[in-house]
């Protein structure tokens, strides 16, 4: 039985290789070999995983080969600008406009330089954590302490999805305690391990992390130097609601909901609570044939209607979130303008 399955597996690989050579011309405007470049250089990260899931479904639906290349943001944008025939498209997340808002090198306004395509999923895991033994119980205590003049150091990766939550907290302090926002200090770090390390070294009071990477740390015994606690998940309440009830690890969906607004509130403008969902979406060359975009919208509509992809996404703790191009573009444009207001308020 096992031998057979191996044989099948190998045969499938070889066949997959040959199939491309002899693939019958499929009924699609896309070339037989579609390349999706992503804005991340990691083949282990969430961008790659989300793209791989969608790529597999698309390959089957359109009967073409789809390949995901982790070239990184700069190279991906550059390729996208150059190739307009639809043989290369891009998948990335909110970083594509946040990088622009934060003025990072290599980022331009994606709504002007590219076409925004359909959204496919959300990574709901963006989280802020304190050390288990931290004197601060919740985010409100941290922000109050800050307003009272204590420096609160937050470990983040600057210039993007990791910084937006920090900017939101700073903005909330600015609104509720004008002039005190300077007490929230960024500790600029790189990878998740660097941010964790900043906490272990006692250089940060609060770190940006994720449900996926940090959940086990929250279950360590209190006397462990590495133990942490969640204080805030930036996701929308309704996003977490859609996760599988088991949640992540031993932390159930119910547990996770405690850390989402309205239970934890960071005000955006004095009335509404700030939320941030990391949403994955396609980007196209500005001059790409609209018929191709329509075809992709259509294919994804069918894929999501079949319902299988949602299960795959949820198993990996991603939230299905399909919006066709037009809807996605309007939605993301609005999202960007809200965050632009926050970032502008802090820099002026």
């Amino acid at each position: 039985m096992k031998k057979l399955s191996l044989g099948l597996c190998l045969a499938a690989t070889v066949a997959g290789g040959i199939a491309t050579t002899s693939a019958a011309l499929a009924d699609t405007g896309f070339p037989n070999n579609l390349r999706i470049v992503i804005g991340s250089k990691s083949t282990g990260g969430d961008t790659y995983q989300n793209t791989a899931i969608v790529a597999e479904a698309l390959a089957e639906k359109l009967d073409i080969n789809v390949k995901v290349d982790a070239v990184g943001a700069t190279a991906a944008f550059k390729t996208l600008k150059r190739v307009s025939n639809g043989s290369t498209i891009m998948m990335f997340h909110d970083q594509s406009y946040l990088g622009y808002l934060y003025g990072r090198k290599g980022y331009e306004n994606p709504f002007e330089e590219y076409r925004i395509g359909p959204t496919v999923s959300i990574n709901p895991g963006s989280a802020y954590l304190v050390a288990q033994g931290s004197p601060f119980q919740g985010l409100d205590e941290l922000m109050t302490a800050c307003a009272d003049g204590t420096d609160i150091r937050v470990a983040i990766q600057p210039g993007g999805v990791s910084e937006i939550g920090y900017s939101a907290m700073k903005n909330a302090i600015r609104i509720e305690h004008p002039g005190k926002e300077g007490c929230l200090v960024a500790v600029n770090r790189g990878s998740q391990s660097d941010k964790n390390q900043a906490m272990f070294d006692g250089l940060a009071d609060l770190i940006h992390g994720s449900v996926q990477a940090n959940e086990q740390y929250t279950r360590l015994p209190a006397d462990d130097q590495k133990a942490m606690r969640f204080v805030w998940l930036t996701a929308r309440n309704q996003t977490i609601q859609q996760a599988n009830p088991e949640g992540m690890g031993q932390t159930s969906r119910e547990d996770l909901l405690q850390y989402v607004e309205p239970n934890v509130s960071v005000t955006q403008d004095g009335e509404k609570n700030f939320t941030f969902d990391k949403e994955f979406f396609f980007l196209f060359n500005k001059d790409m044939d609209p018929a191709l975009i329509e075809e992709l919208d259509q294919a994804l509509t069918e894929i999501f209607a079949e319902g299988e992809i949602q299960e795959t996404q949820k198993t990996s703790f991603f939230i299905p979130n399909f919006m066709p191009s037009a809807e996605a573009e309007a939605y993301l444009k609005d999202k960007m303008s809200q965050y632009a207001t926050i970032i502008d308020a802090l820099h002026n």
């Binding site: 990691s42 996926q212 990477a213 940090n214 086990q216 279950r219 360590l220 462990d224 590495k226 198993t315």
Partner: peptide
């Protein structure tokens, strides 16, 4: 790490 995540297995201190 990607391979673990895709299988729904979480890596971490536990």
């Amino acid at each position: 790490i990607g391979a673990f995540t895709l299988q729904g297995v979480q890596v971490g201190p536990l």
